[in-house]
Amino acid sequence: MVNPTAQDVKTGVILLAHGAPTRVADIPEYLKRIRGGTASSTEVIREITERYEAIGGSSPLLQITKAQAEALETFLNQEGDRFRVYIGMRNWYPLIEEAVQKAKDDGVERLIALCLAPQFSKWSTERYLNSFNEALGACDAGGIPVQFIKSWPNQPSLIDAFVERFRAAESDLKAKGYDTFHTVFTVHSIPSAYVEEGIDPYVQEYEKTLNGIRQQVPMEPWHQAYQSQGMIPCPWLEPSVEEILDKIADAGGKAVLIFPVGFVCDHIEILYDIDIGFKKYAEEKGLSLFRTESLNTSPLFIEALAGAIWEHLA
């Protein structure tokens, strides 16, 4: 049911995502944006290019995010045409500034920005907030009332969507003959200094998602890991997925289900890091590795996005 406070007000919703190149030729410029204007080395460009070529030459992130936005707008407008949903990427096109300008041109009366990473981190999510605020200034849109949804790690429909994916994977593994398996939860790693200095609640945010899922589907054995550490030469949050796979192999495990709860759609960290990188590593350790299907346009996930928005309109 649409929240009554949303009635008769045109609300713009901007889904904020990291962004990804849609062709390998754009990778140097894409990496330059990520690094704040500094060009990457030839070696780094070559390595990232090889990863994108391994998943087909482009990321599906933009296509999936567009589909999520379209499904969300349809869902929100079940009782009237009051919402417009846009997408804005922090590191690629369409940029956040483009989304803000489009919303302003459409005459929205308020804006809600929702970061498509459920677990808040000062190292990552806050950068989206800063980019969004910069876009408001650049578009002279400071007069539009705005809200920024930065944390929704245990939104009920989000947990339900993850549980649905886990149960489907569990059923598939049992059909393949794996009555027991190790579940490895993952989120994107961040520099550990942010957590050690007590300025980032990321670990607690991660645990909210994990606990919400495990309350519905108790599972044993399970592990908590961090993946896709960056190329910045600093300590990153651990344990890494590789360390957990080593532990499972040493304990005589046979099957592993990777459960990436820090990501809401297929992109390079899913299609390469897990499906290619971790799978190869697991095979070398004598393990069979599987993963849960990404949320993508799951109806429950679209409902979760809507729920997070309605909660902020109350």
Score class of each variant (00 low, 15 high):
Gly57Met: 07
Ile64Ser: 08
Arg84Gly: 05
Gly37Leu: 00
Trp92His: 04
Ala71Gly: 05
Lys32Leu: 06
Ala54Met: 00
Leu76Val: 04
Gln119Leu: 11
Ser131Leu: 14
Gln63Glu: 15
Ser59Gly: 04
Thr38Asn: 14
Leu61Gly: 11
Tyr86Lys: 01
Arg35Ser: 12
Lys102Gly: 02
Gly37Trp: 01
Tyr128Ala: 10
Ser124Val: 11
Arg35Tyr: 06
Ala39Met: 12
Glu126His: 15
Glu126Ile: 05
Gln78Val: 02
Lys104Gly: 03
Asp81Thr: 11
Tyr52Leu: 06
Leu116Gln: 13
Pro60Gln: 00
Gly80Ile: 04
Thr38Ser: 14
Leu31Asp: 01
Glu109Val: 03
Ala117Gly: 08
Ala69Trp: 07
Gly36Ala: 09
Pro118Trp: 05
Lys104Met: 06
Glu73Arg: 12
Pro60Ile: 00
Gln68Thr: 08
Arg110Pro: 07
Gly88Leu: 06
Tyr86Trp: 04
Glu73Gly: 08
Trp92Asp: 00
Gly37Asp: 03
Val85Thr: 15
Val85Ala: 13
Gly57Pro: 05
Gly107Trp: 09
Ile87Lys: 00
Asn77Lys: 03
Arg33Trp: 06
Thr49Ile: 12
Thr38Leu: 15
Lys104Phe: 03
Gly80Arg: 04
Cys115Ala: 15
Ala99Phe: 07
Trp123Ser: 14
Asn130Thr: 13
Gln63Arg: 11
Arg90Glu: 01
Glu53Cys: 05
Phe83Glu: 01
Pro60Gly: 01
Glu97Asp: 12
Val100Cys: 10
Val44Asp: 04
Ala69Val: 07
Pro94Tyr: 13
Thr74Cys: 05
Arg46Gln: 13
Leu114Phe: 05
Arg82Met: 08
Gly88Trp: 05
Val100Asn: 01
Arg110Ile: 06
Glu98Ser: 13
Ser41Arg: 03
Asp106Val: 07
Gly37Phe: 05
Lys104Glu: 08
Leu72Glu: 07
Asn77His: 04
Ala67Pro: 02
Arg127Asn: 05
Lys122Tyr: 12
Val85Arg: 09
Glu43Gln: 13
Ala54Tyr: 02
